[in-house]
Design a binder for these strands. Structure first.
Length: 183
DNA sequence: GGTGCGATTGCA
DNA sequence: GCAATCGCACCA
């Protein structure tokens, strides 16, 4: 399946977030095995004014990848035990990224629902911080488009500290397709 | 050098 | 409802 190129990421962050749904997250392990899963839930963190964003207080060693041009990963470690994977968006100098919160579990994984579980399922840690999303270890493929009727927007999770930005509908979720009725 | 806390999860 | 667990941002 076709890979997404850097142009996909170097756009408005909310557009990229919406467009990421249904795309296929791909991760090549050291032994050559490739894990794949469609993205089901993401959140946008858009610009220096977004109080929920790590970039809100300016550039630091940790959030530096957010300030780079789109098309790389931003991976951080939280709560002393979980990694979170972001896709960096927009142009160089404008800090923005999309947090990948859930995907279909790749083969062999129990769950990739939740940002910490997603990184665990795909074996992602800080060694991939700043990695190109067009590189050999981590990339996205086109996948199947998700129609608007299957997308729900909500406020972001876990950002109670973000003032007026708490309620912004920057979370995008794929609504599960209704199963065929049984008969 | 010390302190507080987090873009979460799992278990009571 | 809350403990786990530690890197890092911030202050001194």
């Amino acid at each position: 399946m076709k890979r997404l190129g850097v142009r996909f990421y170097r756009r408005d962050t909310l557009e990229v977030a919406r467009d990421l749904l249904g795309r296929v997250l791909c991760r090549r392990l050291a032994d050559g095995m490739v894990l794949r899963g469609r993205l089901l839930e993401v959140e946008a963190y858009d610009g220096p004014d977004d109080r929920a964003s790590h970039a809100h207080r300016g550039r630091t060693p940790r959030n530096a990848p957010m300030f780079e041009a789109g098309g790389i990963a931003y991976v951080y470690f939280v709560y002393g035990m979980h990694h979170c994977l972001n896709v960096v968006t927009g142009g160089k100098g404008y800090p923005a990224a999309v947090l990948l919160r859930a995907a279909e579990p790749p083969e062999g994984a129990v769950s990739a629902a939740g940002p910490g579980r997603l990184t665990r399922a795909f074996r992602i840690d800080r060694s991939l911080d700043g990695a190109r999303l067009t590189g050999p270890d981590l990339w996205l493929e086109e996948g199947a488009p998700v129609p608007d009727r299957s997308v729900r927007r909500t406020p972001r999770i876990g950002v109670h500290y973000a003032g007026a930005w708490v309620s912004k509908p920057y979370r995008y979720v794929v609504i599960p397709e209704r199963k065929e009725s049984r008969r």
